[in-house]
Amino acid sequence: MNDYQIKIVKIEGDFEWHDHQDTDETFIVLEGALRIDFRDGHVTLNSGEMYVAPKGVEYKPFADSEVKMKRLTEPQRMMYGYKFANTSLRWFFDAGPRSLNSKKRLS
Rank of each mutant, 00 (worst) to 15 (best):
L45D: 00
Y80P: 15
Y59E: 07
V43S: 02
Y51F: 10
D24L: 05
F15A: 03
Q21G: 10
D14E: 13
K10F: 03
E12G: 14
H20L: 00
R105N: 09
S102E: 04
S47R: 13
G48H: 11
Q5W: 00
L106V: 15
D64K: 11
M78C: 05
S99P: 09
F84Q: 02
I6L: 12
E74S: 07
V57Y: 07
M79F: 12
S88E: 13
S65M: 10
Y4V: 12
K68D: 08
D24A: 06
D94A: 07
N46D: 10
K68G: 07
V43L: 04
T87E: 03
N2P: 11
D37F: 11
K7P: 09
S99V: 08
D24F: 03
N2Y: 12
G41T: 07
A95S: 15
M79E: 09
L100Y: 12
S107W: 13
V43M: 03
V29Y: 01
A63F: 10
E74R: 07
L34M: 11
Q5M: 04
V67L: 06
N101M: 05
H42I: 14
E16D: 08
G56C: 09
V9N: 02
H18Y: 04
Y80C: 15
M69P: 08
S65Q: 13
Y51P: 04
L30V: 11
H18S: 02
T73L: 06
D64W: 10
M1L: 02
K60D: 05
R71Q: 04
L89S: 06
M79C: 09
R105S: 10
R39W: 10
T87C: 05
